[in-house]
């Protein structure tokens, strides 16, 4: 009896340690963003302090951060929409039709997940310089499709497969066109999968740094992660502003991810447990 009670306490203790481990850097970022400069530079660091919003006032007084957040939002929303529009029909075809080369095509979509952005960053830089796409939001929207489209195809193919094929047969008997079947049966019934893949696409695009760093150089078009890292120059770093910007970038996405954590987790671990 005593042994099980100790086991149970250890279990709770372990869970609390995991919780602290998972949240600590996030907690440290948020609290640092609420400290003033003297508290930030205190050595050893202070854990109790008078929270102030002055860092947030500073970053929002300047248009740099707000413009960057807006740019990120425009790019992430556009690329997410585009990858859903392009990806869901492809996922439907992969889920329901039989044709030659299907397996290879599916593998090709999936293998895009593994490719390092640095492989594409160079040629995309050169090409977009030639055609005048450098320093446009469009080039980011397009290049982000290389990782978003595979995610949408992957998750939605899986989701569409779980929809009973009988529905499709009876709709066809009633004279529904192929597009009707996709639009009126698969999209609505597969909505959970479509939503999860859209969330992933949004988060990946929102967080992306490398392409945004090399393809955008004009200040007004920079995305939020790039602007956040740009603070890291000069002698005395404005840590309060850096952490406030970090919080502005990370907080909405993490809160959202936590709200839909069940779906997030399913999407993340998909394919690894089959």
């Amino acid at each position: 009896m005593a042994a099980t009670r100790i086991g149970s306490l250890l279990h709770a203790l372990g869970l609390l340690i995991v919780l602290a481990f998972a949240l600590f850097p996030f907690y440290w970022m948020v609290t640092s963003s609420l400290k003033d400069q003297t508290e930030l530079l205190a050595s050893p660091p202070v854990w109790f302090f008078h929270p102030t919003l002055s860092n947030y006032m500073d970053i929002f007084a300047d248009t740099k951060v707000t413009t960057a957040v807006l740019n990120s939002l425009i790019v992430a929303v556009s690329t997410t929409l585009l990858s859903v529009i392009l990806g869901t029909p492809a996922a439907y075809a992969l889920a329901r039709f039989e044709f030659r080369g299907k397996a290879d095509l599916w593998f090709w979509f999936i293998s895009n997940r593994m490719i390092s952005p640095i492989v594409l960053a160079l040629p995309v830089y050169l090409l977009s310089r030639q055609v005048g796409l450098l320093n446009t939001r469009l080039v980011l929207v397009l290049i982000y499709l290389t990782f978003n489209l595979p995610i949408v195809v992957w998750i939605c193919t899986d989701q569409f497969r779980s929809i009973p094929p009988d529905l499709e047969q009876s709709a066809r008997l009633e004279g529904a066109s192929q597009f009707d079947i996709f639009w009126r049966i698969y999209l609505p019934l597969g909505l959970p999968g479509v939503a999860v893949s859209a969330i992933f696409a949004f988060i990946f695009s929102w967080n992306e740094l490398l392409y945004a760093l090399v393809l955008i150089t004009s200040q007004g078009l920079k995305t939020a992660p790039v602007v956040a890292t740009n603070f890291m120059s000069g002698y005395e770093l404005p840590w309060g502003k850096i952490m406030a910007t970090g919080t502005v970038i990370v907080l909405p996405v993490t809160v959202f991810a936590m709200l839909v954590s069940r779906h997030m987790i399913r999407g993340l671990t998909m394919g690894a447990t089959k």
């Binding site: 998972a22 990370v250 991810a257 954590s261």
Partner: peptide, 21 residues
């Protein structure tokens, strides 16, 4: 379990910033 998605959703660049701090 919910808290585990926090590290995964955190912008990598910001992870670097937090690391520097």
């Amino acid at each position: 379990r919910v808290s585990l998605v926090v590290p995964l959703a955190t912008t990598y660049a910001v992870v670097g910033l937090i690391g520097r701090l």
